[in-house]
Design a binder for these strands. Structure first.
Lengths: 209, 209, 209, 209
DNA sequence: CATGAATGAGTGTTCATTCAT
DNA sequence: TATGAATGAACACTCATTCAT
């Protein structure tokens, strides 16, 4: 699906306001105003508020899937190194698409079988399969331990990053980083998170620290 | 603050629907209907929808704080063991108050300075201070390593548990546990999460695996 | 009808708030709060908000009627002097029962046949008959002119006083009396109004100025 | 500000119902029904019930101010004649805009500093200044007496007319005019009021009757 | 006698959506 | 294609009143 300039403006504004106020808390009026388009355009282009949310998801998730699959199939990189690349990718993705990921976190709290829930589920399933394959490869090659709970491991990756992103102002306060610029802070968190998670994963996957 | 039966029914229904649909997605009508009380009772007892949300928080958080502080001060337990108890407490709390914690996760996504945001902030700050003290005690006694990023460590604890709770149906699917009863599943997850987190914390805090 | 202390407190509070906010604008909650009585007491004592309004009227109007009738029948006073006494009475009544008269002004704007409208109507009718008799007496004695439109004359009396009372802050401003105390101002207005109206009535009723 | 047909229908219905029931007594639902428009249109066009009231005022008061000012500046008319024209204008205005003037009377009973109170205040102030100038002109030319209380004089004008308008059914009854048509009655009252007030003003302003 | 609790009807307002143009 | 106007449904909340105690 390709969108014109106005449609993209709507999608971006929707992403921002959905992230900030939630689906119900963000009105199509506000989104239209933020995007500087006529209110009726949203229904006109996307059909409904729900369909707009789906468009936001579709727009942000299409590029994500391929990356992981390509990485797994690359035979020139060791499996632990692949894991480390994956961690860095994940951290980066979260940091640079904070708004979208806030929407995802929110949507996962809803237990209804919405089309968006289906999209998220599929995305996570595909990802999980790739990671499982990666772990099995590592186990076959002797790099990784046996008996690794991949789901739990991924929960730690996703959960830790989500938590830091969600609570970044708290993180700043706890570590006296209130005066850092946003850019500096992102750089700082990126480094810290990367090291922290790589250490954890090494400990989970391999036999020594 | 003590609540009568009807007030508690309202609080419980509110907790459930706020968790399920978010603050804006849950209407006071639905909450009143769920609690089998007249619509006007909610305003009558709590003043407003916002105040009801605050009552939900107040009701759930008052008991939490003391536990951690008491644990820290107990001199009969080793520091690593204290950490393990803390992990088990945390996992249990999340599992048994899933709905409330979903509300907390949601509220933290909002960046506004609501009274509830203040309550959450205070709770987290107090908790963090206790944990920091615990880690320092462990470092003084030589049990724990130097240079431990407590904030990151706690993010891993909270984030991992949150993620598992949020995505429990996905977790069931990934591990072929769809047919487990809710009780069995909780027991299973409790054990798994506990072991997983204790391993991670041991690796973070101490020098060997 | 005799009222106990609480009932009188309610009536007084009702008078104040009805005058300030109108019948619909004053809630029974506010009245109960102002009177420091339980909300349910109002329905309990007076039956309904409407009945409370009637009680306010009944309480304030019972004493008024007699005065005029007695004055008319007094044979020791000249008719023009009677008119002057009447004017002074009227001015005083308005000044000292401002709140109640504001309610009356408001009620007369409503064209519905409420019980209160009937009370007001009866009061005005009785009054008007007395005045008509007074004017006829004066005409018979030769003190007053023929062809006097008593209704119009009374409209000028009532209308002028009402207008001054209603717009007293405007009157203060126009005459640079903003710094006068309430008591001083009432005294001032009383004198001014009295003279003004007596002059007008003399001009209407008699043949020279 | 120019209004379309629907907006004018809303304003007219609002004027009618505000006059009849007061601001609080007239619901936007009733106004919408009276104007045969959808309930939401009122918020859509005017923003709120209060803003609608302001629109009613704005719509009715814009044309009024100029008239008086132009009259004062006309050098071809004597000052007493100007006063008489003013009286006729005033009487006419009240008779033909009864509903709006009832709203004004009501609003002046409220002592809050609403935007409408400000509008009324400004209107009255401007008017009063013009009249003061007119009286001073008359005094300079020797037509009028010295020591004239313009505020009281205007209170008599406005108050008398207000009272007659407010109590017109009582006036009909007192003068046995119940069977007159509305038009005939207006004509009758107009004539009576005009003469009555002109006499009073002559007596107030000049030295003989 | 008095009242806290409770209620159905009603309030003004906002919502996502549709439609005529 | 684009939009100002319009709408029915729903919103949170307040109302005057009632009732069990």
């Amino acid at each position: 699906m390709e969108y014109n300039e106005k449609q993209l403006a709507i999608i971006n504004s929707a992403e921002k306001l959905f992230a900030l106020n939630g689906f119900d808390g963000a009105s199509v009026r506000d989104i239209a105003h933020e995007a500087c388009v006529n209110l009726a355009m949203i229904s006109y282009y996307f059909g409904s508020k729900e369909k707009l949310m789906e468009a936001v998801f579709e727009q942000r998730t299409t590029k994500i899937r391929l990356k992981v699959e390509n990485l797994i199939q690359d035979t020139s990189i060791g499996n632990l190194e692949k894991v480390n690349i994956l961690i860095d990718d994940y951290v980066d993705k979260f940091i640079h698409q904070q708004e979208f990921h806030k929407i995802m976190l929110r949507e996962q709290l809803i237990e209804k079988n919405t089309p968006i829930a289906a999209l998220i589920h599929e995305l996570k399933k595909k990802n999980m399969e790739s990671i499982k394959k990666l772990v099995m490869d590592g186990q076959k090659s002797g790099e990784f331990k046996k008996n690794i709970d991949v789901t739990l491991m991924m929960s730690t990756l996703v959960g830790t990053v989500s938590n830091i992103i969600t609570c970044q102002s708290f993180y700043r306060e706890m570590n006296n980083l209130e005066n850092m610029t946003e850019i500096e802070f992102q750089k700082h968190v990126r480094k810290k998170l990367s090291t922290h998670l790589k250490n954890i994963f090494k400990s989970i996957l391999t036999n020594e620290g």
